[in-house]
């Protein structure tokens, strides 16, 4: 088996199990109130952490580049009630234009 296939098989297996963890092993079992209040925070915490890594994440570094003004502009739009698609379009446009200018 080549290196690539070993990586594909092992990573695939881990990922299948990760994604199934909640629905298969936990199912619809009722959590205790305390556990539920921890689980309720997963969405806001994970989403904001994804915003951080997606905006300034680099190769083991913090990288402040054209993404930052793009996401900031989208943040203002979201604040003012812009729909999802518009916010994404604003972020992409600002960032793409800045990259174009910088070239």
């Amino acid at each position: 088996m080549s290196d690539a296939w070993i990586v594909v098989a092992v990573v695939g297996t881990f990922t299948l199990v990760f994604k199934a963890a909640g629905p298969v092993f936990l199912g619809r079992r009722q959590l205790s109130a305390r556990a539920q209040s921890v689980v309720d925070l997963i969405a806001p915490v994970m989403l904001v952490a994804l915003v951080v890594t997606q905006t300034v994440g680099g190769n083991e570094e913090i990288s402040v580049d054209a993404r930052v003004p793009g996401v900031a502009a989208a943040g203002v739009a979201i604040w003012r009630g812009a729909p999802l698609v518009v916010a994404m379009a604003i972020a992409a446009t600002v960032t793409a234009l800045l990259r174009l200018v910088a070239q």
Binding site: L41, V48, Q54, G70, V71, A74, M88, R99
Partner: peptide, 27 residues
């Protein structure tokens, strides 16, 4: 600019959760 667009997606989806003080603090 697709990388920034995905950050904006996550930000837009996070926003409604951040109305309670508890969620905001944790986030």
């Amino acid at each position: 600019g697709l990388d920034a667009a995905f950050a904006a997606l996550f930000l837009a989806l996070a926003a409604p959760y951040l109305r309670t003080r508890k969620a905001l603090r944790a986030a």
